[in-house]
Amino acid sequence: MTFPFDIALVWLDLAGVFFFAMSGSLLAARKQFDIVGSLLLASLVSLGGGVIRDIILNTTPAAFSNPAYLAPPLLATLLVYFLFSSVQRFTSLLILFDAGGLALFCITGTLKALSLGINPFSAVLLGVTTAVGGGLLRDITANEVPQLFDPKDIYALPAFAGAALTTVLWLTGSFNAITACVVAAVVFAFRVAAWRRSWHVPLAVRGWHRLGLDGAGRPRD
Rank of each mutant, 00 (worst) to 15 (best):
V168D: 00
L78S: 09
P158Q: 00
V132T: 06
F121S: 09
N143L: 05
N58Q: 15
A76W: 10
A164M: 05
P146K: 10
A42N: 02
S43I: 03
G173Q: 07
N58W: 01
A68K: 02
I154G: 04
F121P: 01
A68G: 01
G50P: 11
S85F: 00
R89N: 12
L94E: 13
R53S: 15
N58S: 15
L74A: 00
A180T: 10
G100K: 10
A163D: 10
L171I: 10
P146Q: 09
G135E: 13
F90P: 04
P120T: 09
S122Q: 13
L102H: 08
P72C: 13
A156I: 12
D150K: 14
G48W: 12
A68S: 04
V145Q: 13
G100T: 10
T130A: 06
G37I: 01
D54F: 02
G134A: 09
Q88A: 13
V168S: 07
S92L: 11
A42L: 00
V36K: 10
A177K: 03
F105Q: 11
S43F: 08
V128S: 10
S85Y: 13
L40V: 01
Q88R: 15
P72V: 13
P120N: 09
I178G: 01
A180S: 08
P67W: 02
I118Q: 15
I178R: 05
L111G: 07
P61T: 03
T110W: 01
V36Y: 06
C106N: 11
L169Y: 00
A131V: 05
R138D: 07
L136M: 14
S122D: 14
G101V: 06
D153I: 11
A99I: 00
P146R: 07
T77W: 08
L126R: 05
R53Y: 05
P67I: 10
T60V: 14
V36R: 08
S174W: 08
S115K: 14
T59G: 09
A159S: 15
A156M: 00
L111M: 14
K112M: 13
K112H: 09
S115C: 15
I178T: 00
V45N: 00
S122V: 11
V124P: 12
S65T: 14
V128K: 09
K152C: 08
N143D: 03
A156R: 01
A63P: 03
L157M: 15
T167A: 04
I118W: 06
D139F: 12
E144D: 04
N143M: 09
S65V: 08
G37C: 01
A177C: 02
L94Q: 14
V168I: 07
T77P: 02
I55K: 11
L41D: 14
L148E: 07
G162R: 04
L40Y: 03
D139N: 10
L94F: 09
P158D: 12
Y69E: 14
D153Q: 03
N176C: 11
L40T: 05
V145K: 14
D150G: 06
T129C: 14
L157E: 05
L93N: 12
A62L: 13
Q147A: 08
S122E: 04
N119F: 15
A99C: 03
D54S: 05
L83P: 02
R89T: 06
T110E: 01
L165E: 09
A76K: 03
R138A: 01
F64S: 03
A42M: 02
A76I: 09
A42G: 11
P146I: 03
